[in-house]
Amino acid sequence: MWHKIMVIADWFGEMRERYNLIRQFNQSAKQTFIKGEAPTLLEAKITKGDSAFRHEFSKFRGGGFRIKALSGSALKNSEMMEIGKIIIDNEELTRKLIALGWDTLEVHAEGGKKGLKWALKKHAKFGGYLN
């Protein structure tokens, strides 16, 4: 009984962490855009992700972490690639994304039709981190 309550409490804790991460990203992106330091306003949101990239901790229909250009200048392919690489290169962030149930990193240009995606499990380096 207590175990089940703990599991439910963990689930709610994870959901709060997921939305906190999204909110922090969006707030920082907004501040940078308002200050004029960024030419494009970026927005992070949760999507269903790619089922081929699923792993043990993947959230059902919530495995996609999408960064999308909301306004400002449209993102070029090279810029989308660079944003993806910055996220992937940040080991702590990648591990956190995986631990919170994300499996796909998506970077989309304005409009959301054109984009790139990465399988987070390929870039986790989880084994090295854990051992």
Binding site: F25, S28, Q31, T32, E37, A38, L42, I86, N90, L93
Partner: peptide, 9 residues
Amino acid sequence: MENVINSIN
């Protein structure tokens, strides 16, 4: 997260 955004820009 500020560092992540600064790294992007």
